[in-house]
Nucleic acid binder design. Structure first.
Length: 204
DNA sequence: TAGGTGATCTTG
DNA sequence: AAGATCACCTAT
C-alpha cells in the first residue's frame, strides 16, 4: 500500500460538516475485513448536519437505539440497514452531542478489486461495482457490525489523497430525502466531476 | 419503472 | 402488536 498519512481523529472533529464532506473527496478509504485488504478514492459524499437538518436521522435530537452512535465523538462509523438490504456507511463528525455525519456514497477502487468483485458477485470492474452507497459498502465489506467502530485504526481507516480544488467538485442536492421539505434543496451532495465512479450525475 | 427486503419507528 | 416508512438496487 502506498505510504500515505492516515487521517486521525482530530480530522473528524471539524464543526463544519459540509466543508468536511467536500474535503473527503479525493481521500483514500481502506478496509481490511476478514483479512481482505481493499482501498479506493472517495468520489462522492453527502453531509448530514445533526439536529437542525430535516434529512438527518438525528433531526430534532432524535435519539434511538439506531441513532445513538451519531451523538458520539467524531471519527467513528455509523452504519445502518436501509430498505432491508443495504448497509449504508457514514462517518460521524464534530464533537460529541452534535450528531453530524457524512455518508460515503461512492469510491474509485485502487487496491483489492478482486475482493470487491467477489463480494458483489461480479466479474468485471465497472462503475456500478462501487458507486451508490449500498454498492460501495458491500464491495468494501462494511456491514452493520462495524457500527460504532473507529475509522482511524484497523478494519476501516482513511488516508490523505491528492488535493482537490473547488472546480473539480460538483455540488448538488442529496438523494432519497424528499421528505426533508426545504432541506431537501440544500446542495450537500458532492462528487468529483471527472470521475466515472459516481452514483448519479446531476442534470445540467 | 416497479418491486424486493427487513429493521426501525410510530401509532393504536 | 401491527403498519408505515426507508439516506437503495436490479432487472424487466
Amino acid at each position: 500500500m502506498p505510504n500515505r498519512y492516515k487521517l486521525t481523529q482530530s480530522y473528524f472533529l471539524n464543526s463544519d460538516v459540509v466543508s468536511l464532506a467536500k474535503q473527503l473527496l479525493g481521500c483514500y478509504i481502506h478496509t481490511e475485513i476478514n483479512g481482505n485488504y481493499c482501498s479506493g478514492i472517495i468520489t462522492e459524499t453527502e453531509a448530514y448536519a445533526g439536529k437542525n437538518d430535516k434529512a438527518c436521522h438525528a433531526h430534532l435530537g432524535r435519539f434511538t437505539e439506531r441513532t445513538k452512535v451519531m451523538y458520539e465523538i467524531g471519527g467513528i462509523a455509523y452504519v445502518y440497514l436501509c430498505y432491508g438490504i443495504h448497509h449504508l456507511f457514514n462517518i460521524v463528525t464534530n464533537t460529541a452531542g452534535n450528531a453530524d455525519a457524512i455518508l460515503i456514497r461512492a469510491a474509485e477502487p485502487t487496491e483489492g478489486v478482486e475482493h470487491m468483485l467477489e463480494r458483489r458477485n461480479k466479474l468485471k470492474l465497472t462503475p456500478q461495482l462501487t458507486a451508490g452507497p449500498g454498492n460501495f459498502s458491500k464491495a468494501f465489506g462494511i456491514t452493520k457490525q462495524h457500527n460504532g467502530l473507529t475509522v482511524t485504526e484497523h478494519q476501516i481507516w482513511l488516508s490523505q489523497g491528492t488535493s482537490i480544488t473547488e472546480k473539480d467538485i460538483v455540488k448538488t442536492t442529496r438523494i432519497g430525502i424528499d421528505y426533508a421539505e426545504e432541506d431537501a434543496l440544500l446542495p450537500w451532495r458532492f462528487y468529483l466531476k471527472e470521475n466515472k465512479f459516481v452514483s448519479k450525475k446531476s442534470l445540467s
